[in-house]
Amino acid sequence: MLAMLIGLPFTWIVAAFSNVNSPDWPSGFFLRRQSLSSIRSTASLKSCTLVLTPMSPLTTDDIRKVAALARLKVSDDEIGRLKQQLGEILQYVHRLDNVDTSGVEPMAHAVEVTNVFRADEPRESLPREQALANAPQTDGRYFLVPPILNDQ
């Protein structure tokens, strides 16, 4: 879904982020929000080179595509609900289009931080037995998964 927002300038996202004090979402939020302006992406989700222009709401195909990308099996009922709920959230997020961040310094952290490195040396890792202990299926040595390629 948020791939649709990639066309937005990054600087204002960071500028607004520096003031984040947001609540975790109220659970009833999705049903209370009314449509603001109707906006969506013109490009396909696959390309990830998206530009925002005002258009019609999310389609069932959009939801199916994102669910497939997220590896989530969703029922037809869920698709209907998600279409409405996610559409409303995206419209709400689009209010950020109106923020003027020209001349605002990007900021990502309240404390000055630098990248952290460590020596690339072998270290002790989790014993195999413990690593496998929570797996749904193993042969005692490896994680087992269903066939990746179907027999042709």
């Binding site: 879904m1 948020l2 927002l5 996202i13 500028a15 607004a16 982020f17 520096s18 003031n19 984040v20 004090n21 947001s22 609540p23 979402w25 959230i89 709400y92 997020v93 209010r95 950020l96 923020v99």
Partner: peptide
């Protein structure tokens, strides 16, 4: 005054779900 705080929830909706 934190004039941008009105946008914080919308920004959270981008950062947290991503």
């Amino acid at each position: 005054a934190l004039p941008h705080s009105q946008h914080s929830v919308a920004v959270y909706y981008i950062v947290a779900p991503s």
